[in-house]
């Protein structure tokens, strides 16, 4: 099969603006978009830049927009796109560093803001926490997150409101507060009781749609909202007593 890859190129500051470059790619075998990009780089233009590592959809390096769809290049098979013209763009909502490489810093900064680590009790338990599997299963969905940034870059709120933490960070926060081992106080996680936090979400669920690991981050955001409301009510009732 022969394909035309239209790849967005941009090398600031030399290039004044991004542009598309066409490459011919032919293969008789089933190849991933990542394999195709590597082939194009090796055979046609060694300066083409993109990130990759594991090639098995677990490291989260190669998120990009492939024929309009946000996905990992490594797990997207070229033939599955059912088109001989394939358009490759970097993830939006993030500044392009070079070609398909984007600056993930705002994504990581948002993650850091939620204190993305377990706040356990002070003393380490000699034989570990005892938690039933059913308890862990409640957060399993969120544990699958590989922090690829697809949800962040597709999110319309992120694109218009720079305060917004984005789906991955909020889902991570929910994963942590829902963990029976996490003892962070309400004052800590209620900091997301804002428009830049849990209430910023437009609930149009683009993040759920694009997540390559089926994390469904918006489920976490909605659950976080419910938890915030419940905690607030609890507090008011306690105050009245």
């Amino acid at each position: 099969m022969e394909y035309i890859f239209e790849i967005l190129r941009y090398d600031p500051p030399q290039d004044k603006s991004p542009y598309f470059q066409e490459f011919l790619y032919s293969t008789e075998e089933s190849k991933s978009v990542l394999e195709a990009l590597m082939n194009i780089r090796n055979e046609q233009d060694c300066t083409l830049s993109f990130r990759y590592s594991c090639r098995e959809a677990i490291c989260g390096s190669c998120g990009m927009v492939i024929n309009g769809k946000f996905d990992l290049a490594c797990r997207t098979m070229v033939e599955s796109l059912e088109s001989d013209r394939i358009i490759i763009e970097p993830m939006p909502n993030l500044k392009i560093q070079k070609d398909l490489v984007v600056d993930m810093e705002p994504f990581w900064e948002a993650l850091h803001k939620i204190e993305p680590f377990l706040h356990p009790q002070k003393e380490i338990l000699e034989r570990g926490h005892r938690i039933e599997e059913e308890e862990m299963e409640k957060i399993l969905q969120y544990i699958n997150c590989i922090l690829c940034g697809c949800c962040y870059s597709v999110c319309p709120v992120v694109s218009r409101d720079e305060r917004y933490l984005g789906p991955a960070a909020l889902a991570k926060l929910y994963r942590l507060v829902k963990d029976p081992r996490d003892k962070r106080p309400f004052s800590n996680w209620s900091r997301v009781n804002t428009e830049g936090g849990a209430w910023g979400c437009d609930t149009i669920f683009k993040c759920n749609e694009v997540c390559p690991k089926d994390v469904r981050p918006a489920d976490g955001i909605e659950a976080l909202r419910r938890k915030l409301v419940v905690e607030k009510i609890k507090r008011i009732l306690r105050l009245n007593k």
């Binding site: 356990p120 862990m136 399993l140």
Partner: peptide, 18 residues
């Protein structure tokens, strides 16, 4: 292992929570 568990690693569990 117990330190990793304390840090938050979500290990799978047996009945009884171990």
């Amino acid at each position: 292992i117990y330190e990793l568990e304390y840090f938050g690693v979500p290990f799978s569990r047996f009945p009884g929570g171990v």
